[in-house]
Nucleic acid binder design. Structure first.
Length: 319
RNA sequence: GGCGACGUGGCCAAGUGGUUAAGGCAGGGGUCUGCAAAACCCCGAUCGGGGGUUCGAUUCCCCCCGUCGCCU
């Protein structure tokens, strides 16, 4: 039997990945595996554009709502869960659909990154964070010149991770950072839109999120005890909603953003996000089969999927 | 019509008679192996227009244009 094939749907935010995936899942007897670093958090629904209950009833979803907002989560945890989910889906004879805009997660899985098995060490990090940048950089340069060259002197976060791996394993992070091709095939559909139209859709969606109660959602999270400083709360939308609430007399004191300011900021931040996603999902990437978002995506994607999976119904028209 | 103020890259905004005219935002490009919607890196202007003064003007003077405010 041929190696199983994973179909992935990637692309910038607000491009319709979720809707497409749900439809495709229905037609391919598939299940969805989320590759989204923000939809993993429970209670963060509106701001992450999480699949709706209807979406989730229409197709099984994995890797959505898997941790509480104050639980640590990272690439390593995601990879483990994703691999488990894939095995599970395949074992039941279903077709997995990897869907999401977190480029790091997607490529780490498809390229088989062997992430150093060193979970974050809170105490160690705290200690390292207290040090100044130059000393961190010097040390990385001493123990792991290639990593130092790649990371550069200014990126404290990654310098600290490099030292963390070194201290825990006794070997430089570069030693661990390898790739091993996964035991499955993968095919990637990329959804794309012209920049100006993408921005327009983002803006509309942000307004819709606010209408749908994004600020209340943030208020609720704060009330549950999830503080502004958590990584999960640094997500676009929540960050700004909290800044808005900070000026709300009922929540506290201080200067907050007006709702309009918050909305504007969420929009431009999301524009930036889509640009960074663009760096992970490049137009020239030969692995990605690009499809214009909007009219006809479903048909085009289904045709591709049938072709790739060797299913009847889409063979006649060339590749 | 008069008086006053202002006119610096798409927007906001420093600044000096003389090295390559701060910075922020927006925008564009990029890095990426356990925080990734994070973190980090790179990219843009000759200073409204025209005359002067000066060795030299974005910075001083004059005129024009424009904007804003006040006044008649």
């Amino acid at each position: 039997m041929n190696p199983p094939t994973l179909i992935a749907v990637v692309g910038p935010t607000a491009t319709g990945k979720t809707a497409l995936a749900v439809e495709l899942a229905a037609r391919l007897d598939g299940e969805i595996v989320g590759a989204d670093s923000r939809q993993v958090y429970r209670h963060m629904d509106i701001g992450t554009a999480k699949p709706t209950p209807e979406d989730r009833a229409a197709a099984p979803h994995h890797l959505v709502d898997v941790v509480a907002p104050d639980e640590p989560f990272s690439l390593g945890s995601w990879l483990e869960l994703a691999q488990q989910a894939l095995d599970d889906i395949w074992s039941r004879g279903k077709q997995p659909l990897l869907v999401g805009g977190t480029g790091q997660y997607v490529w780490a899985l498809l390229e088989g990154w062997r992430v150093p098995k060193v979970p974050p060490q809170p105490e160690l990090r705290e200690r390292l964070e207290a040090r100044d940048g130059p000393s961190l950089f010097e040390e990385v340069r001493r123990v792991d010149p290639p990593a130092a060259a790649r990371i550069g002197p200014a990126n404290r976060r990654r310098l600290i991770r490099a030292l963390e791996v070194y201290e825990v394993t006794g070997r430089p992070i570069s030693y661990w950072q390898t790739k091993e091709p996964p035991d499955f095939e993968s095919r990637v559909i990329g959804l794309r839109l012209p920049r100006d139209e993408l921005y327009r859709r983002i803006d509309e969606r942000v307004d819709a999120m606010i209408d749908a109660g994004l600020v209340d959602e943030a208020r609720r999270l704060l009330a549950m005890g999830y503080s502004r400083g958590l990584p999960s709360m640094s997500g676009i939308g929540y960050k700004e909603a909290c800044a808005h609430l900070a000026g709300d007399p009922s929540t506290g004191s201080g200067q907050g953003l007006t709702l309009d300011e918050a909305a504007a900021r969420i929009k431009t931040e999301t524009h930036r996000l889509s640009r960074r996603q663009h760096a992970w999902f490049k137009p020239g990437d030969g692995r990605i089969r690009w499809v214009e978002a909007g009219e006809g995506v479903l048909e085009a994607s289904e045709r591709l999927a049938h072709q790739w999976l060797g299913l009847p119904g889409a063979l006649t028209h060339g590749r």
